[in-house]
Amino acid sequence: MKLTTKLMALATSAVMALASPAFAEDWAPDGPLTIQIGFGAGGSTDTMGRVLAEVMKKNTGWNIVVENKPGGGGVAMFTGLSQRPVDNKTIGMGVSIPVLVQLVQRGDQLPFDTDSFDYLGTVAKAELALVASKDAPFDDLEGMIAYAKEQGSLPVATMAPPQVLMMNQTKSTTGADFNLVTADGGAEVMKLILGGQVMAGFGSGEHYPYLESGDMKVIAGANQSRLSYAPDVKTFIESGVNAYVDPIFFLAMRAGTDPAAIEAISSAIDEATKAPEFAKIVQNAVKGDPINMGTDGTKQMMVDGLANAKILFAK
């Protein structure tokens, strides 16, 4: 086990040694590259972003600075990014769904759209789950809806607008009533559930330790397909609510960036997503493997995602 890891590392570094001079010749940033993360420190995006930056730094020798720019599920950061002058060295890292939903909901008020960026690649897919305390008197979404109807209403914690929309969809499909409590992030959702202030809430990874310890249980998967770590749990769609989100962690730069820079940075990202130490962090953060769709794939993902979000989340 140990030996194979070492061999892998050796092999990767050998590949890198061959690969890195190639793009170092073509292009190098003048000054430090900045990766702006659309979420606060300590979350899964932050952790992956920081390690990604570190691996890229090691591979390329570029200086990379990581900054946190939280707010609105990454919308604040992407808004800022779209308003910056093109400098060929500022990269944004965020999650697709919150951005897409904001574009659908208030696209006319936001100063950017999917064309405002040049896409560099993706890092991983997030699995979003609705979880509840182990003592909750229901085990799946149907049970929860029935319980909400019986009680009159049920408090549920959300952390971003897409989840609010999913719960609203649930409300209008089933007629059950939910009190939606907006939390500052996954960690706060967990606190509200553990403290008994809400019955259920959304987690995008923060709940893993509590599943392991048996303090919480998964009620429903919020992605299109079932959760990889809880294959027996039905999704929202399977429970009769036609809504899902497939959040993907991606990186982008301001549109109009020098194509040579895009080329060099995106291949550095691709290189980094293949590194074993990065795979380990992704496994910790989202319980899945790194996924890189490449520059064109990422753009396609955003365009398709927007069309999809329009159908799912149009007002």
């Binding site: 420190a41 952790t47 910790n284």
Partner: peptide, 22 residues
């Protein structure tokens, strides 16, 4: 609980997670 109480604490949690502490 894994809940940071301040910006400084959030940075510490970030560092912990990078070093494999959950």
């Amino acid at each position: 609980l894994g809940i940071p109480g301040s910006v400084g604490a959030a940075l510490i949690i970030s560092a912990f997670m990078i070093h494999g502490m959950q």
